[in-house]
Design a protein around this nucleic acid. Structure first.
Length: 394
RNA sequence: GCGGGCGUGGCUGAGCGGCAAAAGCACCUGACUGUAAAUCAGGCGUCACACCUGACUCCGGAGGUUCGAGUCCUUCCGCCCGCA
């Protein structure tokens, strides 16, 4: 294994903000990057054609180990040649390990040293997810970037709780690393392709995850232990899980600059457009969040002037687009009045169109972020962006 | 014409002596951050109030019985179903 799984380089910096290029075996990802979430093998409410279009141009999306493991399952995944071929997505994939479900499905699981005993949310079946199983499932999925199985403590977790969580995460990280390496050697990676970029080795990449809740000493320790094991990239987990916003910003601010400078930094599960701007300024490179897709389905649009709920009566006769300064195909064609009508009528096109706009807005924002960093104007861009987004969508 | 049934908040529709009145729909508002989410929560007679809340009006109309009536009685109006 001479070449690394991914090739990462910084092309511009401004303060802590970095613009970079992340070459994976399937696509070149310009960072800072936003990754739409495609939990169950689909980015809900939008077709891959749209994600691949010049308009959106998402280079990488997420998939979820826990959900795809339960359904359709590893056998189907292997029989169909991995998640790319199964779903028909040819660009890069990052798969979350199921660690987040350890947290979000808290009521349905029992945590042990060995792993997590889940009660399937689908049918109540008893399932057991361990670092080894997570790596095996992710090998079957064949994603470009594999995440270690971690334990995500609540955002406001006390020191001792966060400490135990961090310890467990560190032990699971070592086990994930070990099993991952074995699986790569065994050729279990279903996403292998011979057409990969020559600068990378063609295998899967593995990212470690830093935990520690809001306790900076624990974050530092978690980082040190994660880096010691060694990964292709490093994620900040355990944020945007109930803690106050300043806590999140401060944690990123203190942690990101201490992370390896030659590897991508992935802030998991974040966030709002403001969060992305703030986290980039503090040194984060990669993001994923359900907000543009989930909120798109519930009628909330993200715009350059803040959010607006398309169901509100005040838009009933409003001929303006969701965002007057948005160049997306939804904003070029449809009025708020029409979108509200679709929403009120429960037409399936309503969530589809709002999701499309939201993703376009997020992805376009990241494009502008990259451009600003490259041209040394990020400070100004950030100030203008935040000023405008707080000005109101009226 | 005779007999029977029914009239409840924007709509459908519970209620059969203690009610501002079930439920659903519609409507209004809010939430949503590594997706158990095309979901969930709250509001929805009027007025006042930041708040516990208070006042008023109310179940087709008018009378009556009762401490108390959407609920019982009389009558009128309207709609529906039978029989002529």
């Amino acid at each position: 294994m001479s070449k690394a799984a991914i090739n990462w380089q910084v092309v511009a910096r401004e303060g802590e903000a970095r613009a970079g290029l992340l070459q994976t075996r399937r696509s070149l990802i310009e960072t800072p990057a936003f990754m739409p979430v495609g939990t169950a093998g689909t980015v809900k409410g939008i077709r891959f054609e749209a994600l691949e279009s010049e308009e959106l141009d998402a280079r990488i999306i997420l998939g979820n180990t826990y959900h795809l493991w339960l359904r359709p399952g590893v056998e189907v995944m292997r029989a169909c040649g991995g998640l790319h071929r199964f779903a028909g997505w040819g660009r890069a994939l990052l798969t979350d390990s199921g660690g987040f479900q350890v947290w979000s499905l808290g009521g349905l699981r029992k945590l042990r040293e060995e792993g997590v005993e889940f009660r399937s949310h689908l049918n109540g079946d008893l399932c057991f997810l361990s670092p080894e199983v997570s790596m095996e499932v992710q090998a079957a999925l064949g994603s470009e970037i594999v995440m270690v199985l971690d334990e995500c403590a609540p955002g406001e977790a006390e020191h001792d709780v966060a400490r135990r969580s961090l310890d467990l995460t560190a032990r699971w990280a070592a086990r994930s690393r070990k099993r991952f390496d074995e699986l790569q050697r065994e050729g279990a990676d279903a996403g292998r392709t011979e057409e990969h970029h020559p600068s990378v080795g063609g295998q899967q990449a593995l990212f470690g995850i830093v935990q520690g809740a809001a306790h900076q000493d624990l974050r530092r320790e978690s980082l040190a232990r994660t880096v010691e094991i060694g990964f292709d990239g490093y994620a900040i987990g355990g944020l945007s899980v109930g803690e106050a916003k300043p806590v999140m910003y401060e944690t990123v601010e203190r942690l990101a600059p201490a992370m390896p400078a030659d590897a991508p930094r992935y802030l998991m599960g974040v966030g709002t457009p403001e969060d992305l701007i703030e986290a980039v300024a503090r040194g984060a490179d990669m993001f994923d969040c359900v907000l543009p897709t989930r909120n798109g389905r519930t009628g909330q649009a993200f715009t350059s002037r803040g959010t607006l709920n398309i169901g509100n009566a005040r838009w009933a006769k409003d001929a303006r687009p969701l965002d007057e300064s948005c160049p997306c195909s939804v904003c070029r064609r449809h009025s708020r009045a029409y979108l509200r009508h679709l929403h009120q009528s429960n037409e399936m096109l309503a969530p589809v169109l709002v999701t499309h706009h939201n993703l376009a807005f997020f992805l376009d924002t990241m494009r502008r972020v990259r451009q600003a960093i490259r041209s040394g104007e990020y400070t100004r861009f950030r100030r203008d962006f935040l000023g405008q987004i707080n000005s109101g969508a009226e």
